[in-house]
Simulated scan of single mutants.
Amino acid sequence: MAEKKQLANIQFSRVRVFTPIFLSIIIIILNPEELRDAIKRCVIPIEVISAKIKGSGAILSESVKDNIKLSLEKKELEKQISLLSFQYAKHKELFLENERLREILKYKEKTKFNIIIGKILGHDPSPLSSTIVIDRGSDDGVKKKQGVISLIDGRNVFIGRMIDVFPQSSIVLLTTDPGLSLPVRLEVSRTRGLLVGKKHGMELKFIPSQLDILDKEPIVTLAGTYIPEGLLIGHVESLSPKRRGLFRKIAVKPAFSPYKLEEVLIFVSN
C-alpha cells in the first residue's frame, strides 16, 4: 500500500515538471501569428458579449429615463388640464351670471316698479317651512310683504314674499310654504283661484269642477301690492276628474327649485 502511494506521488511530480516544458514546446512549434489569431478568436466573442451587455444596459437605462420623463409630462399635462377646466368653469359661471344680470336690467327698465337685486345667503333647513335668506334688508328699502321674483329660463318667476326684515338681510317666505296663500289665475282660461303652499309643491283651490283645464297650464299672479300681474308661479301638475262637487282639486308644480335660486329681484315700491 505504501509503495502504491509512493508511486502515485512520483507520477504527479513528473506531471508538474513536464507540463510547463510541454506548453513551451507547443508555443515554440506553433506560428506566432497563428497563436495570436487563436487568442483573438477566443477573446473577440468575449468582447462582443461584453459590448452587447453594455449596449443592453444603455438601452435599458434610456428606457427607464424615457418612462420617468413621460410620467412627469403626464402629471404636468393633468395639472394643466385641471387648471384649464377650473378656468373654463369660472368663465362659464361669469358668462351665465352676466346673462342673468343683463336680463334683469332689461326687466328693470320696462317695469313700473322700483327693483333691487339680491343674492341668496342660505335656506331654512326646517321641514316645516320653505324660506330663504337674502343679502338685502331695511337699509336697502326692503319691507315686509314685498314680492320677490327670480329670472328662470328667460321668464320672471314669482317665488315668494318678505316675512322678516333686518338691517342687512331678509327672510323670504316661498310660495311652497304652507303658511303662504296667494290669489292667482290660470293663464289660458283666465279663471281665478287661491294658491296654497304645500312644502314640496302647491295646490290651486276654488276652481270650478266643470272647467276645462289644460295639462301643464301656467298659473300666474294677479296684480297686488308689491306684486305685478302675470308673473309665472307654476304649472298644473295633476287634477281630479270632473265631478258633481263645486271645485276640482289641482296640484301645482312650482316653476322654480329653491336650491337652484341665485339672484332675486325685490319689488320695493310702485
Rank of each mutant, 00 (worst) to 15 (best):
K5V: 15
V15T: 11
R16I: 11
R16G: 02
V17H: 06
V17L: 13
P20A: 14
I21H: 04
I25S: 04
I29E: 13
L30Q: 13
N31E: 08
E33N: 09
L35M: 06
R36K: 13
D37R: 13
D37I: 10
A38K: 09
K40E: 07
E47H: 06
E47F: 11
V48N: 10
I49C: 12
S50F: 05
E62T: 06
S63M: 02
K65C: 08
D66R: 09
D66S: 12
I68W: 00
K69S: 10
K74L: 13
E78Q: 11
I81W: 07
S82P: 02
L84Y: 14
Q87Y: 14
A89R: 15
H91Y: 15
K92N: 10
L94H: 13
E97Y: 12
R100I: 14
L101T: 03
R102S: 15
E103L: 07
L105E: 14
K108T: 02
I116G: 07
I116L: 01
G118A: 14
G118S: 13
I120C: 10
L121I: 12
S129I: 10
V133S: 06
V133N: 05
I134A: 02
D135A: 05
G137Q: 06
S138L: 05
S138E: 11
V142C: 03
K145W: 15
K145R: 08
Q146N: 06
I152K: 08
F158R: 01
R161D: 08
R161G: 10
V165R: 00
S169N: 13
L173E: 14
L173S: 12
L174C: 04
L174Y: 01
T175E: 05
P178V: 09
G179K: 07
P183S: 04
V184L: 04
R185H: 12
L186W: 12
E187A: 07
T191R: 08
R192C: 06
R192K: 14
R192N: 11
G193E: 02
G193Q: 03
L204W: 08
K205P: 05
P208V: 11
D212G: 07
I213Y: 03
L214P: 00
T225S: 06
T225E: 15
I227H: 01
I227E: 02
P228E: 01
I233A: 00
K242G: 03
R243S: 14
R244Q: 10
R248T: 10
K253T: 07
A255H: 03
F256L: 01
F256M: 04
F256K: 06
K260N: 15
E262S: 15
V264W: 04
V264A: 04
L265Y: 03
N270F: 11
